[in-house]
Design a protein around this nucleic acid. Structure first.
Length: 471
DNA sequence: CGACGGGACGC
DNA sequence: CGACGGGACGC
């Protein structure tokens, strides 16, 4: 009759996301008491009371895993503050931090009540509300619009009052909405007041510009003393990656440069990498230096990281920015020679040769690199490319296919040996096709072919010359 | 304040 | 031979 196994594999703890509770309670509360109290809210997959290794006594902490996030959220909402037994202290109930996360602050309702959805461009905020109100009371709906034209970008936010409502929406709404929990806004400007009612005032009370929710992850070490360190010079970087990387990998890489105060890989609702990480250093120099050295760094090999400043309109090439960077560089060099002046570990092997290696080996005589066309360029031609024996990494493909000009985007079909190269000019696509058909890059044979555009193009736009070879 | 076990897959 | 993703908030 083991309906509810107490154990489950570690890899299921966060699946689905936010389906596990962190419960702080009296040390006297037993697993059975917890199970009794929480099982009415859903299917419990496991209960674990954390005990002292030696004494085997409960530490007053436990985890309760549900099969669904909505069940866990409901249990949290209903049980928080309740007494599980006579004379026991009221329980505190939170959604457990995912096991892969290194953060230590509680998961707040703020992070669990807003969803992010893809909607038809024709949707008004009223339509959005009407669609999602069946899952719970909505505090507000917002559609992301073009700032100038006011046209919808087909994306929206829905804020519910309770985490269980947001979870319910994510679990049950039509898949085409692709509902996920919204990432909290990154800049804590905090004076938002959508409701007129309950004031979400967690951010109030901090009257300086230091960031309130930065876990002190890096060790600022000796560099705090430098003149460049001040809230005014605090700078953030955005790291983009196309291949999967872990939070730990990004952390380790950017922690090489002293002064990292914040590092978070942004995740989607399934806990996978979304391809972006936010890094913040305590000072401008470290941020400038990190971008200088790590932009283009391949990690893992073949996956080029792109590092940019989070755009705030500041000029990084200002004399003070360069001085700040040189200051950090000098500190790091001296630390390499003299040994670390603090607990920080410097540089991985090959650090100095960042981004100097070519990642493309081919017999094709390639033209030089060309800039990509802007992402919003209209696609005039797509090449359908078949790879053998396997796909090439997207950054390698971008490197190769951009060289004929006007490349907008590389798109690989997941799990298949094919992909698309989008071009803003037909001639460029034709040139790439002619130069690359049947050629080998990094041991992979490529067979690009022109595709039929679904949106019928202007006939005057299609020259009759140079038909695709070999087809 | 209050954060992560014990035991060991299966053809 | 082969075939279709994505996605972020005026401070």
């Amino acid at each position: 009759m083991e309906e509810y196994p107490t154990k489950q594999p570690t890899e299921n703890l966060d699946d689905p996301p936010n389906s596990r509770l962190f419960v702080v309670t009296s040390r006297s509360i037993t697993e059975d008491a917890l199970r009794d109290a929480f099982s009415v809210f859903g299917d419990i997959q496991g209960v674990w009371v954390v005990k002292d290794k030696q004494t085997k006594e409960s530490k007053g902490i436990c985890y309760v895993k549900f099969s669904k996030s909505s069940q866990a959220c409901l249990a949290m909402e209903e049980m928080h503050g309740k007494q599980l037994a006579e004379a026991s202290k009221p329980v505190k109930v939170f959604i457990a931090q995912s096991r892969s996360s290194t953060r230590h602050r509680d998961v707040e309702d703020e992070e669990l009540t807003r969803i992010f959805v893809m909607i038809p461009k024709s949707f008004s905020e009223e339509d959005l509300k009407d669609t999602f109100k069946e899952y719970g009371d909505i505090e507000y709906c917002v559609i992301i619009k073009n700032k100038f034209t006011g046209e919808s970008k087909g994306l929206g936010y829905v804020r519910y009052y309770k985490p269980s409502q947001a979870a319910h929406a994510i679990e049950n709404c039509d898949k085409t909405y692709r509902a996920i929990l919204a990432e909290p806004r990154t800049k804590a400007t905090s004076t938002e007041d959508y409701s007129g009612g309950s004031n979400r005032g967690e951010y109030m009370g901090s009257n300086d510009t230091m960031n309130q929710y930065a876990p002190p992850m890096g060790d600022p070490g000796n560099y705090q003393a430098m003149d460049f360190r001040s809230a005014d010079f605090t700078r953030s970087l955005m790291v983009s990656t196309r291949a999967a990387v872990t939070q730990e990998q990004i952390f380790a890489l950017f922690d090489i440069i002293p002064g990292m105060e914040y590092c978070e890989l942004q995740r989607d609702s399934y806990g996978m990498s979304k391809g972006h990480a936010l890094i913040r250093y305590s000072n401008l120099g470290s941020a400038v230096y990190a971008k200088e050295k790590l932009n283009g760094f391949e990690h893992p090999p073949g996956n080029r990281l792109v590092v940019n400043f989070v755009d705030d309109g500041e000029d990084r090439n200002s004399p003070v920015g360069r001085m700040a960077m040189q200051f950090v560089a000098a500190q790091m060099m001296s630390s390499v020679w003299n040994g670390p002046s603090n607990s920080q570990v410097m540089k991985p092997p090959g650090f100095s040769s960042v981004s100097t290696m070519s990642r493309v080996q081919t017999d094709v005589n390639l033209p030089p690199l060309k800039k990509l066309a802007p992402p919003d360029s209209k696609t005039k031609e797509r090449l359908f490319v078949v790879f053998s024996p396997a796909q090439l990494p997207p950054d390698v493909l971008e490197d190769v296919f951009c060289r004929f000009g006007s490349l907008i985007e590389v798109h690989l079909v997941p799990g298949r040996k094919v992909g698309y190269m989008k071009y803003a000019e037909k001639q460029c696509a034709d040139d790439a096709l002619a130069a690359l058909h049947g050629r080998v890059v990094n041991g992979v044979k490529m067979k690009p072919a022109a595709t039929v555009m679904t949106l019928t193009p202007d006939p005057t736009d299609r020259p009759t010359s140079s038909p695709p070879p070999d087809l």
